[in-house]
Design a protein around this nucleic acid. Structure first.
Lengths: 158, 158
DNA sequence: AATGATAATGATAATTGTTATCAATAGGCG
DNA sequence: CGCCTATTGATAACAATTATCATTATCATT
């Protein structure tokens, strides 16, 4: 469904993030939403470029940053020096998850195995930290690092 | 105390991480251990340089990477595009903590406010994920993002 | 303690992800 | 429809990190 919004800035919560609603911006969000996993900025660029050859790389960076500030997408650190992105379903309650990251090959597995327990602890912590340190918490990242099955099997040589 | 080890590679668990034990490597670890907070690679470089003018930046990068792989130090993502480091006290049980990171100014607050509860959940999760996905988990990162008190006070303009 | 194979270093070039610049363009309120 | 200005696209600039390579230092073996 394309029509998340007709194509108007639509207040301060829409894709426009309070700015003008532009075709490139929509295309970038659209592209990311159609991609599996956690594409890097460049991968998003390639994808958008496919249906919109004139797009500029800088525009992709700018909008990913904007969408992130607007809370629509989320940044994932795969430890490979590039920024990776994914849709932020956290708010909508759609598909919030945490990560399992391989230190050797950089693969990222999403997991949702945390039950109510984990969610409860998180929101409790969030509230507590918020009060104690005066931070305005908007987001969190929980990741486990190590070796994926494949890399672990290769032995820990070199 | 300097003498974490006389100055020999000392097996595969020492600072040498299974490689040759060198003075630069020791100096780099030493420097990091004397620094507060979460210095960047360059900050570590500057500090080491003070007592060892000939040190090369590449050597610092190489050894930080090595020490990280060896589990002696830990990487912190402050979201400012640079890698930051801290001693890994996780194993030793010394001062393990999690982070509260400001998205605007990049400041990082360590907190240890999680009680037994949090630790229990983590180790439970670690075990569960390890079994389910075949990952060999060695490490985790729990960070809350948002605005620190100061930045939040400045309003969310711009 | 001297030797020698080779891992590690230091200086620097190269690479790479990201950001700044700026003229041209397009969004959307009047 | 027309204007104001945010946004774009192309590209230069930037900064952090990595690769290269001749030289030096470590340390197992003698």
């Amino acid at each position: 469904m394309n029509g998340r919004c007709g194509r108007k800035a639509q207040g301060w919560r829409g894709l426009g993030c309070g700015r003008r609603m532009t075709a490139p911006r929509e295309a970038i969000y659209q592209a990311l939403s159609e991609m599996a996993g956690h594409p890097s900025a460049d991968e998003v660029f390639q994808k958008v470029r496919a249906g919109r050859p004139g797009i500029g790389l800088a525009t992709v960076y700018r909008n990913l940053e904007l969408l992130r500030n607007g809370g629509h997408i989320r940044l994932v650190d795969a430890g490979d020096g590039k920024a990776h992105f994914e849709l932020n379903h956290a708010a909508g309650g759609g598909g919030h998850h945490h990560h399992l990251i391989c230190r050797r090959c950089g693969s990222v597995v999403d997991y949702m195995d945390f039950e109510r327990e984990e969610l409860e602890l998180i929101s409790k912590l969030e509230k507590h930290l918020s009060r104690k340190y005066g931070h305005q918490i908007t987001d969190h990242d929980i990741s486990f690092y190590g070796l994926c099955q494949k890399c672990a099997a290769q032995g820990s040589k070199r």
